[in-house]
Every structure is written in structure tokens, then in C-alpha cells.
């Protein structure tokens, strides 16, 4: 295998991560999303965004508690979370509301449910923009600090996700529990954890 491919093979994971989006569009065009396809499409994209966000956040505690180091996938999972969150917003603006800006403006100014979701996405923008090696070099220590924004983003997204159901239920509860565990694990004192072996 040429050296370039060897070093960059992980790039193929980006299109792989986009398969659910392509699959959803295909289903939507072939009547497989049911009677309310726009709603299912929009919600599914949001759920994929939340899944990738959780995956991204889980990598640090995974290494800490099991020793399994997958931290090199943080950029992949984080960028996919941003990709799906952006599509989720686009589906809501374009497909669901037909770019009706007056409805959107009133949603954005009145509805905490929408405001929470949009704030989460806004917080992810600088992270996506600085997810390259050049930014890491330029920002140095500040890069790490900046990328802690993923925590407030995840909390906002989690509340938005919780509110997208009428009640707590067996679909949303596991995701919310996972988020809570990941966040709590950050507060466990290091001394009690050992070195992960």
C-alpha cells in the first residue's frame, strides 16, 4: 500500500459515516419513511447528530476506564455530528418549513426548544472550523480550551433531544443516560481510577 494511503485510510470513514444520510434520502424518495416522511427524516438526522456527538464524547472516558485508545476518531465523530446537525437544521428550515423565514424567526425568538437546539449547533461551528492540524498548531493551549465547548453543546443538545418527545420513554432514556454517564465520569477523581489497567 502506498504510504499516503496508509496514513490517510481513515478518510474513507467519512463517507461511511454519511451512509445513514444517503439511506434516509433514498428511503424518503421511495415512500419508505411512512406517512409523515419529512418529520421522520428531520428527527432521524437529529438522532444521528446526537449519536455521533455521544460517540465523540465517549472516547475520552473509554480510554480512561478501559485503556482502549480511540482518541484519533474524535475528529471523525465530531465532524460527523456537525454534519448531521447541519442537515437536521437544513431539513427543518427547508423541507419542514419551506424556508418560511417568518415562522423560523418566531421559532428562534420564542421557542426554547428550538433555541436550545440551534445554540448547540452554533457552539459546534468553531469546533468544526478548527478541527484541523493547522488550527491546533496556531491555537496551541487555547485549542484544548476552545474544544471544551463540546460539553455545553452536548448538554444543550441533550435537553433539545429530551424535549423532542412528549414524555420520557425507552427510546430517549438510553441516550440521555449515556450522556449523563459521560458527563459524570469527568468528575470522578483520577486517583480512584488507577491507570486503566
Amino acid at each position: 500500500m502506498p504510504g499516503v494511503l496508509k496514513r490517510h485510510w481513515r478518510l474513507v470513514l467519512y463517507p461511511v459515516g454519511m451512509i445513514p444520510a444517503v439511506w434516509l434520502v433514498w428511503q424518503g424518495q421511495h415512500g419508505a419513511l411512512g406517512a409523515d416522511p419529512v418529520n421522520v427524516f428531520e428527527r432521524s438526522l437529529g438522532l444521528w447528530a446526537f449519536r455521533f456527538l455521544l460517540a465523540c464524547l465517549a472516547l475520552a472516558p473509554l480510554r480512561r476506564f478501559t485503556g482502549l485508545n480511540l482518541l484519533r476518531y474524535r475528529r471523525l465523530t465530531g465532524l460527523l455530528a456537525f454534519f448531521y446537525a447541519s442537515l437536521h437544521l437544513l431539513a427543518y428550515v427547508g423541507l419542514d418549513h419551506g424556508f418560511d423565514w417568518s415562522v423560523l424567526w418566531s421559532d428562534m425568538t420564542h421557542r426554547y426548544f428550538i433555541i436550545l437546539g440551534m445554540s448547540a449547533l452554533v457552539l459546534l461551528i468553531p469546533l468544526a472550523l478548527t478541527s484541523n492540524a493547522l488550527s491546533m498548531r496556531l491555537l496551541k493551549r487555547r485549542w484544548k480550551f476552545l474544544h471544551r465547548l463540546i460539553y455545553p453543546a452536548a448538554i444543550l443538545a441533550g435537553i433539545h433531544f429530551f424535549l423532542s418527545f412528549k414524555t420520557l420513554n425507552s427510546v430517549s432514556a438510553p441516550y440521555l443516560a449515556a450522556l449523563a454517564l459521560i458527563l459524570l465520569s469527568r468528575f470522578l477523581p483520577r486517583s480512584r481510577i488507577g491507570n486503566g489497567t
Binding site: V25, G28, Q29, G31, L33, G34, A35, D36, P37, V38, N39, F41, L95, D96, D100, V103, S106, D107, R111, Y112, F113, I114, L163
Partner: peptide, 15 residues
């Protein structure tokens, strides 16, 4: 959590 001014019409089956 959302506007009630308009409604999605069920039955189109196409995204």
C-alpha cells in the same frame, strides 16, 4: 415548542 399556524398534510409519502 412549535407554531400551530400551519400543518403537515399526511399522505404524500415522498420526502
Amino acid at each position: 415548542r412549535w407554531s400551530q399556524a400551519t400543518e403537515r398534510v399526511i399522505g404524500a409519502h415522498s420526502l
